[in-house]
Structure formats: structure tokens, C-alpha cells
Write a protein that binds this DNA or RNA. Structure first.
Lengths: 196, 196
DNA sequence: GTCTATAAAAAGATAGAC
DNA sequence: GTCTATCTTTTTATAGAC
């Protein structure tokens, strides 16, 4: 690890954060390396010194964002165990990080395009996420959910609700109570009795 | 209405369909007018003759796609009434129109970007959609849903599930049974008893 | 490590010929 | 109605100076 003098100990991370921001505001296709460079006071070529291409920059941005989310997901859990409450907490956290949510929403949807550099990342990410979410659900609610659902069915629905709510919330933050609606969905899964 | 001779009675619609296709494959930002033009055997300027700008082209594409969906939604309903079964039918229909779904997924997510030309379209679209969906739910399931949910809460969840499942399905069609999972969510809403 | 210079391609849009 | 020509801007990326 090479050390540099001055305030700029880690330009790389600085660039990654700026890139996440710009991708959020313009999407991957719409973002230019130059605009990212501007944020950190570099020239376009200065950025390309750290990341050989735009594709690679995106790849590393996604890895960073995943690490951060993992932090939020795992840290509050007791003993590292993820619960449905932890997940609800993540949604609450997201409701206060519009930029992060927006970057994720735009990039994941963009990734369905053929040959998109992030396509594989998101495909695998959803695959593994569904797997551990099914286990979280099973551990907490058992094998039999309301209406005969299985944890394996509930898991993709969970992420669908999260993603879909994010989209509506980004478009109309005042109309959509994202955490509240997510918790409403959770209570549907838990089969809680009506308060009547 | 001017009439032209030959097979090309309506170039405009031809272009709109091609544009929908290209937007699906590359997103709005990533799509070029030239690539759309190529599909219909025109030059870039040939397309610009019918639509003054890329923004306007997008606007008309979205209007077209909405009309089509409305067809699917309303036609099968008896007497024009939309039911939850009609909505499930729409999801089934979508599962066989990957291109359409992809264009919607990419464009709607892109639209959350500031100053995106489709932003207002989607914001209003979701707003009105949630309103009529809440009424559809109320008409069919009444005012009290499982776990104390209201139709006004269920409506955004419904669209969230639809959109979120589309994303996962586009990335992994073999892993995600989109219509089946949507029906599973519906049964959750209906509070159907477990088949045990 | 960061810059200037530069290449090479592609984009949206306008003007005007036919 | 469709084209060629052209303008202007922007893009990613390379080469090489300091």
C-alpha cells in the first residue's frame, strides 16, 4: 500500500463515491467520465489513471455499494443474524439515502439491457439474495406462510416490493411512505390478525 | 389525414414501434435516432422529419405503449370492468412480451433521473394508476384486507410487485415464474385460507 | 500521479436539394 | 417525404510530457 502525503490518501475511493453519485443522477450510459472527474477536481484522464475504463469503474462502484449495504444489514443484527426487522431497517435507512437508492434503481434496470456491463452482477446478486432471504423467512416464519406461500415464493416477492416501492418513492416521495408500505407487506407475510 | 400509396400508409407508427424496440434494447439515453431509422429503412433525418426531436419521439412512444396496455386491460373485462383477474391476465400477457416489458422497465427507471423527459409521464401514470387500482381492490375485496391493510396501501404494493418481478424476471426468466408469483401475492391480499 | 494533446467515433439537430 | 451535407458537441480512450 503506497502512502501519499496531504489530504488525498485515497483518491480511488473518492472517485468511486463521485461515480456512484453521477451514475445516480444520469445513469451509467448517460454519465461521462469527465463529469465524475470534475467532482473530485481531476481531469478525465486523471480518473482513467485509476480505472482503465468506464466499465471497470462501474464494476468497482457496484462492489462498493454492496459492501455498504451489507454493513447496514449485518451490523444491527445480533450476532450477525439477519432478521425481517433488520430488512425493514434497511428500507428505513434507504428512505434517507435518496442518491444511493436512485443509483441502484437506475443501474439495476439499465442492466437488463443485453451486453450491459452490470448485467451479470445484478443477475447473480438477485440469485444469491433470494436464496438467503428465503432462509431468513423460513427461520422466522417457518415453512408455511399465509395463503400457502413458501419462503421460496416470498423471497422474490420481498425484493420485488423493495425495488418497486423504491421506483414509486423516487418519483413521488411525498405520496409514498416506503418504509410503512414495506412493513405493511411484511405484516401480510406474517399473517398478523386484523386489529378488529 | 393524408393518404400515401404503397405499403407505407403509416410511417409514423412504424417508427414508433421501432423506437419502442430500440429503447428496450438500449434505454433512452443509449439509443440513437440513427439506429431507430435503420430499422425502418430511413436515414436519421428521415425520422426527424416525423418527430422534431428525440424527446418528442419518446413522448409519443410512451403514449402508444399506454394505449396498448389499456387494450389488454380493458378488452377482456366484462362490460369494461377491470378486476384482479384482469390484472393477473395482464401479467401473463407481459410474460410473453419480453421486449415491451424491458422497454417499460428501463424507461421507467431511467425516468427518475432529474430532468428526464419521461419523468412527468411516469409520475402521473403511477399516481392515477394507484388511484384506480385502489378502487379495483376495494370493489373486489372490500375495505378491510388481511393484516389490516387498506386498499390505498395495497395499490402501490401491487404495482411494486409487478415492477419488481419484471426486473428479476428479465434478468433470470428461467428462475422467476412471474405470473405465478404475482398470483401468489394476490392470494396473500385475498387472505385465502391455506389448503391444508 | 496528473496533466495536455490528440485521436477517432458518434451524437442531435439544422439547412436545403430533389 | 426523404435525402446529402454539415455544424457543433460530446464521448471514450491513447500517447506522452512533466
Amino acid at each position: 500500500m503506497v502512502r501519499h502525503r496531504g489530504a488525498r490518501e485515497n483518491r480511488r475511493e473518492e472517485i468511486l463515491l463521485a461515480a456512484l453519485d453521477v451514475f445516480a443522477q444520469r445513469g451509467y450510459t448517460g454519465a461521462s467520465i469527465a463529469s465524475i472527474a470534475e467532482r473530485v477536481g481531476l481531469s478525465q484522464q486523471g480518473v482513467l489513471h485509476y480505472f482503465p475504463s468506464k466499465d471497470r469503474l462501474l464494476a468497482e462502484v457496484l462492489r462498493l455499494r454492496d459492501e455498504r449495504n451489507l454493513d447496514v444489514l449485518v451490523l444491527p443484527g445480533e450476532g450477525g443474524a439477519i432478521t425481517l426487522e433488520t430488512v425493514a431497517g434497511l428500507v428505513e435507512y434507504n428512505a434517507q439515502r435518496r442518491g444511493i437508492v436512485q443509483s441502484f434503481t437506475v443501474l439495476s434496470a439499465e442492466s437488463v439491457i443485453e451486453d450491459h456491463p452490470a448485467r451479470n452482477f445484478f443477475k447473480e446478486r438477485y440469485g444469491t439474495s433470494r436464496a438467503w432471504m428465503a432462509e431468513v423467512i423460513r427461520a422466522e416464519l417457518g415453512d408455511e406462510l399465509p395463503a400457502g406461500l413458501t419462503p421460496e415464493q416470498a423471497a422474490p416477492l420481498m425484493f420485488a416490493v423493495m425495488d418497486g416501492l423504491q421506483l414509486q418513492w423516487l418519483l413521488a416521495p411525498d405520496e409514498i411512505d416506503m418504509p410503512g408500505l414495506f412493513r405493511a407487506f411484511l405484516s401480510l407475510l406474517k399473517g398478523a390478525p386484523r386489529p378488529s
